[in-house]
Each structure stands twice: as structure tokens, then as C-alpha cells.
């Protein structure tokens, strides 16, 4: 089960299609749901689709910096989750709901 075997048998297009589908599912989740936590998880899904694609291209081109960038994406995502969840808890504490349709004060 070597990576050379993967590279020979699976064309890179299949990785591109897989991560495109995951990204589109994330976008659909952001558009469809009202729960702020689900929207946040959809954003994580989109980040991971990009991560998978970067790793696939990095392996196919045997290019190490691609995987370093994946590492940095994970770092930034961890920081983002910490702040975002704190904001969600704060919103819930103030208005007793995380329905994003209640949070429309800045909309117009």
C-alpha cells in the first residue's frame, strides 16, 4: 500500500472532485441551516476540503511545502474555533438563542 500505487491508479481529478463535493456540501450547509453551531461546522468542512486537496497535490508533485501549508491551515482553524465558540457562548448568554435569524441588528 504505497503512495506510488495510489498515484498510478487514481488520477488527481478524483481528488479534485471529492474535495469539490465536500466544499459544496459545506457551502450548502451554511446556506440552509439557521443553527450557528451547524454553520460553524460547515465552515470546518470547507476548510478540510481545501486541506485534502492541498495534501493530494503535494503528494502528487512530491512537494513538501504544500503539507506545511496544511499544517498552518489547521493552526489557524484551531484559533478560529476557540474564538468562534466563545462568541457563540456569549451570544447564547445574552439572547438565549443561537438562531442566526435573531441576530439581524447589523443586517440593514
Amino acid at each position: 500500500m504505497d503512495a506510488t500505487q495510489i498515484i498510478k491508479t487514481i488520477p488527481i481529478e478524483h481528488y479534485v472532485i471529492l474535495s469539490t463535493i465536500l466544499f459544496a456540501i459545506g457551502v450548502t450547509g451554511v446556506l440552509m441551516r439557521r443553527n450557528a453551531i451547524i454553520i460553524f461546522m460547515s465552515i470546518e468542512l470547507m476548510l478540510n476540503a481545501a486541506t485534502l486537496l492541498l495534501t493530494a497535490f503535494s503528494t502528487y508533485r512530491s512537494d513538501t511545502p504544500g503539507q506545511v501549508f496544511v499544517f498552518f491551515i489547521m493552526v489557524v482553524a484551531a484559533a478560529e474555533v476557540a474564538v468562534g465558540l466563545a462568541i457563540i457562548v456569549m451570544i447564547y448568554r445574552n439572547i438565549k438563542s443561537i438562531d442566526i435569524n435573531v441576530l439581524n441588528k447589523l443586517k440593514w
Binding site: I7, V16, Y60, P65, V68
Partner: peptide
């Protein structure tokens, strides 16, 4: 994309994703 993939396969280095290489680059 197909062409660049073929280029990558010819010069694939098995040590691309190891911790050692990643740490050196990082």
C-alpha cells in the same frame, strides 16, 4: 492537470510527507 500529474509520478519521492522532511521545511 493530467500532464502535471504524469510529471509528478516520474519524480515521486517517498519521503515527501515524513515528519523529518516536514520539520526541516517548517
Amino acid at each position: 492537470i493530467a500532464d502535471s500529474t504524469l510529471n509528478g509520478e516520474a519524480s515521486y519521492a517517498a519521503s515527501t510527507g515524513t515528519i523529518q522532511n516536514l520539520g526541516k521545511s517548517l
